[in-house]
Design a protein around this nucleic acid. Sequence first.
DNA 1: GAGTGGTCTAGACCACTCA
DNA 2: GAGTGGTCTAGACCACTCT
Lengths: 242, 242
Amino acid sequence: MEHEELGVTRTSYLDVKAAVLDRIRSGALRPGDQVPGEERLADEFGCARVTVNRALRELAEAGVVERRRKAGTRVLDPTPRDAEMEIPSVRAEIEATGKPYCYELLTRQIATPPRPVREALGLIPGTRALHLTCRHWAGGRVHQLEDRWINLEVVPAARAADFRASGPNDWLIRAMPLSRVEHVFSAENATDEEAELLEIEPGAAIFVTERRTWIEGDAITRARLMHPGATHRMVARTSPPI
Amino acid sequence: MEHEELGVTRTSYLDVKAAVLDRIRSGALRPGDQVPGEERLADEFGCARVTVNRALRELAEAGVVERRRKAGTRVLDPTPRDAEMEIPSVRAEIEATGKPYCYELLTRQIATPPRPVREALGLIPGTRALHLTCRHWAGGRVHQLEDRWINLEVVPAARAADFRASGPNDWLIRAMPLSRVEHVFSAENATDEEAELLEIEPGAAIFVTERRTWIEGDAITRARLMHPGATHRMVARTSPPI
DNA sequence: GAGTGGTCTAGACCACTCA
DNA sequence: GAGTGGTCTAGACCACTCT
């Protein structure tokens, strides 16, 4: 926990930050839980209150906790973190429009991923992974076609998970909070197969998001998310005012 | 500059931050310039060094300045701010690939914008604005077709600017640094006219970015940037590690 | 009213890096 | 080696907000 230097060991705000994050990741602190007050933590870590303050302030800026004066510090639900780029979970995105959300699992199998996926997940050739395809409906229309691979070495629990009732995105957000995300966006013309599944004309423009997620350096999942271009718009977060 | 409270006036880190930002926005401090040291500023503002430290630290986190121990604090070039979402200026984006960059102004006129643009810029009906269309080439291919409106009430200098040699994006980044940006991405099928200008097949998927830029609440510009979907990919910034 | 976070001060030591 | 930022401490006062 402490700075591992010769001589005096002082507690850094980074130590406090890491310790609190650990408690959240390990489940000792769950969403909604109260984080001990600054004074308590300062006592516990043997440091000044300002040091704890900086640690918690940065966690609040990162969206991990919420701080209010009299109310104290609480662990936030991890879901909003996925919305960092205004990309909420598909379910939330659709429900926000007021349309009924519907999820459908198309295929599920454990298989050897094609090379681009294997490399994206950092897997050794021959390793098998969980492959899911599903559709998300908004009202009577297909909103998203999802082609996802999950790294079972990092998330072995996914092997046992049942994705028939709800999508892998919601499941992963709960199982693996606080992960890092990368998005690659592109526009493509739908292939015949994609068009059929999306219920659009072959060749129609589709908006494709390729999302990769890591936790602590390990790639968790790689998803190819396809949307009908005619109905889909993606809003990127406005830069914060300085 | 100081907290306007009754009684004692103490200098907040926000005061220092705002003051330094002002000097940058006003041009008193230009990109590459050295910002006075923490001790100097603390003297000047009559506050503790930690207070200056926090102000400058936040400016560094926001990408406005760069700090290095012995070297001190320097004002950064505003360009990288536009790259907040890994969307560098078109020129930089293309030159990074090693391909030759070429810019071409297609049309330039002062006109009454259509309603969606007028609303995006927050203009009163009837107000005229600067309308530009241009193309950006990467090697022998059209990389981007740009349809841009500039709010002349906020940027009157644009009326006199000559956009024949270099694009409005580069010009605006210099003229209006530290602005806020919003991006909306979508996928569309190219119209016949767009296809001809982009030198692709009609109906081919195009990746469309609609970018709006504000400075202090005033909308500066609205650009519709069209890219051939087949060659264009957009990478969104990976969430920072916590 | 009381509890909690938000911030400032003053002084100190350390760490990095440039000359 | 010297200059600059990075951070910690200890104490203090304030501001918000919940009860």
